[in-house]
Nucleic acid binder design. Structure first.
Length: 242
DNA sequence: CGTCAAGATACCGCGGTTAG
DNA sequence: CTAACCGCGGTATCTTGACG
């Protein structure tokens, strides 16, 4: 549900011309650099039709497209109109049968088998790239906002690092016993600091740390203060992230 | 309703990074 | 190189909720 639009969006915005060329098997791309004398044109376009949305990437005359048939079947299709951009391992026409070499693909039926293979490979590369999106995108959307600073109550709050320095905090606020009734500054201190504070001053310092971190999470909308209490609860967003 | 302690906020200064 | 900026931590002060 809602997957296809995401795929389409990523196909349009996420796939660069290099990606498209890679799908269609253009050479010299393993290095990441485009071949100096490449003179072709790479185009991606999007069409909305009664039967669904179709997205098409084109390199010269060859293209790969994806569409949702009746909203139920995802279909990816490669079309080769310019076979000469591909190679076939074959003997010269009319030449001896053991004079094999990579030669230009021809338009006729002779190279049909190779042509199917090339197309299949292009489709597979395309689907692989999409599959990556499928798994990665929803997570991205959730965390993108967190990883950049936000304004809250006129003050700036830094970006979060869910996999870096903030990981311990995420783990603690995600604990079951704390989500049940919400949690207080004190509860977090208990979980986050191994040793009991040795002095009242240490307690104040820890409390300060926790307060600041709570403010940070509030700024990002992960937790909310429950009114008339010193307790906090995870928001839906927070639950999803943790 | 008053008091008190825990918590929240404001302010400052430090160290590190970046833009000019 | 310097100035501005950012994130952070310490702490003084204000706010709030619990409790008698």
């Amino acid at each position: 549900a809602g997957l296809y639009p995401r795929l389409v969006r990523h196909a349009m915005t996420g796939f660069g011309s290099l990606d498209v060329m890679r799908f269609l098997g253009c050479k010299g791309l393993t290095t990441g650099a485009i071949h100096g004398n490449f003179a072709g044109q790479v185009v991606s376009d999007l069409k909305v039709r009664p039967e669904g949305v179709r997205i098409k990437h084109r390199v010269n005359g060859n293209s790969i497209k994806m569409y949702d048939k009746q909203g139920s079947v995802l279909r990816v299709e490669a079309t080769i109109n310019e076979p000469k951009d591909f190679k076939v391992y074959r003997p010269k026409e009319g030449g001896s049968a053991d004079d094999l070499a990579w030669r230009t693909m021809r338009r006729g039926v002779a190279d049909l088998q190779r042509r199917a293979k090339v197309s299949q490979a292009a489709n597979e590369r395309y689907l692989d790239a999409l599959a990556e999106v499928d798994a990665e995108k929803p997570l991205r959307e959730l965390t993108d906002g967190l990883c950049c600073p936000v304004k809250w109550k006129g003050k700036r709050a830094r970006a979060l690092h869910p996999w870096g320095q903030d990981v311990a905090w995420f783990e603690v606020i995600g604990r079951g016993e704390l989500t049940l009734n919400g949690f207080r500054n004190r509860d977090l201190r208990q979980h986050l600091f191994a040793c009991e504070p040795s002095s009242p001053e240490a307690t104040r310092r820890q409390s300060g740390q926790v307060t600041r971190r709570l403010r940070l999470f509030r700024a990002h909308g992960l937790i909310k203060k429950v009114p008339h209490t010193h307790r906090y609860q995870l928001t839906n967003k927070g639950r999803a992230v943790v």
